[in-house]
Computed example of a mutant assay.
Amino acid sequence: MQIAIASGKGGVGKSSVAAALIYLLKDDYPLIAVDADADAPNLDLLFGVERWEEEKELVGAKVAKINSETCIKCGICAERCPYDCIKILDENYVVNELTCEGCGVCRLVCPVNGVITLEEVRSGVIRKTTTKYGFPLISAQLDVGRPNSGKLVTEEKEWAKRIMKEKGIEHMIVDSAAGIGCQVIASLGGADVAILVAEPTPASLNDVKRVYRVVQHFREPAYLIINKLDLNPGFKGLYEFAKEEDIPIIGEIPYDRTIPRSMTMLKPVVEAFPESKSSKALKGIAEVVKEQILK
């Protein structure tokens, strides 16, 4: 079983919910966790990871390079660059590697062959460790200004699948990134179930609708968790959305200050404050996941 936890909107508590569910399920089910937010991974912080056992570089991005010795300084490349990343520096045309997308337009329009080349550079790094709780964690970090965040997530999941096969692990829980971009598509692709996390606000409702359309594209069953339940009393938009789309609501988590406190302790809230109101709600959700999803 591969479970993807997504939200559409950032800041709704998706990673905190994911960390809590992973912690509550780890003793009953062999599982591996994947942090699929390559832009801003944080699942390792919630589990107090201090070191990585293994790292792999992903090389796949391309950036343009201009040979200043053979460049005739006509400026056509700078004029035609769709990303405006070619500038003059010390009388030479140079490429800003942080904004270059490696599209190759500059090389195509350059009147002198061989002056501009496309060179492969590192997109990011994928990391693996065994947490102090005993389950493996795969994470990734996208380098600044690099593309291929979706490719990083895909490679994360492939690595996780190999570990599952080697160690007889049955389940993968993927903590997706916010939004509906490449990372989220890679997170949801191949998943058996999507658990959506939202807070009772119009912005969160709008974004969870967007990510649900991605879930529908993959024809995956979806479940909804409403976090920070009492943040906006009287807001019924999430309930109406769930009813219209026939999405089961598997839990409601009240707003609870122990959650940010547990983050500062580098622990899931259900470990740091097991008797808090949010922990009790999360334990109930974990039981529903066991009965309805992992049965």
Rank of each mutant, 00 (worst) to 15 (best):
I5E: 07
I5N: 04
A6S: 14
S7I: 00
K9A: 05
G10I: 10
G10E: 11
G13S: 02
K14V: 01
S15L: 02
A20G: 10
L21M: 13
D27I: 08
D27N: 14
L31K: 01
A33P: 00
D35I: 00
D37H: 01
L45W: 02
F47Q: 01
G48E: 06
V49N: 03
E50K: 14
R51Q: 15
K56C: 00
E57G: 02
L58I: 04
G60A: 08
A61Q: 09
V63W: 15
V63E: 13
K65P: 00
I66C: 11
C71W: 13
C71Q: 07
K73C: 06
C74N: 11
I76Q: 14
C77Q: 12
R80C: 06
P82G: 04
C85N: 13
D90F: 06
E97H: 14
L98W: 12
T99F: 14
T99C: 07
C106V: 01
G114P: 07
V115I: 06
T117Y: 08
E119R: 07
E119D: 13
E120M: 13
V121R: 13
G124T: 07
K128A: 07
K128L: 15
T129M: 06
T131C: 04
F135E: 06
L137Y: 05
L137P: 07
N148L: 15
S149F: 10
E155T: 08
E156Q: 14
K157Q: 12
W159T: 09
M164E: 11
E166M: 08
G168C: 02
I169E: 12
D175A: 03
S176P: 07
G179H: 14
V184D: 11
I185V: 15
A186Y: 10
G189Y: 09
G189E: 15
G190H: 08
V193Q: 09
A194W: 04
A194G: 02
I195D: 05
P200E: 06
A203I: 04
D207G: 08
D207T: 09
K209V: 09
R210M: 15
F218H: 09
R219Y: 03
R219N: 15
G237E: 05
E240N: 06
E245G: 02
E245M: 12
D246V: 07
I253K: 08
P254Q: 03
P254Y: 09
Y255E: 12
R257T: 06
R257H: 07
R261Y: 13
R261S: 13
R261L: 14
T264C: 08
T264K: 15
M265T: 00
L266I: 01
L266N: 12
P268L: 02
V270Q: 03
E271D: 11
F273E: 00
F273C: 01
S276I: 05
S278E: 04
S279C: 03
A281H: 09
K290D: 00
K290R: 15
Q292Y: 12
I293V: 15
I293G: 07
L294C: 09
K295Q: 11
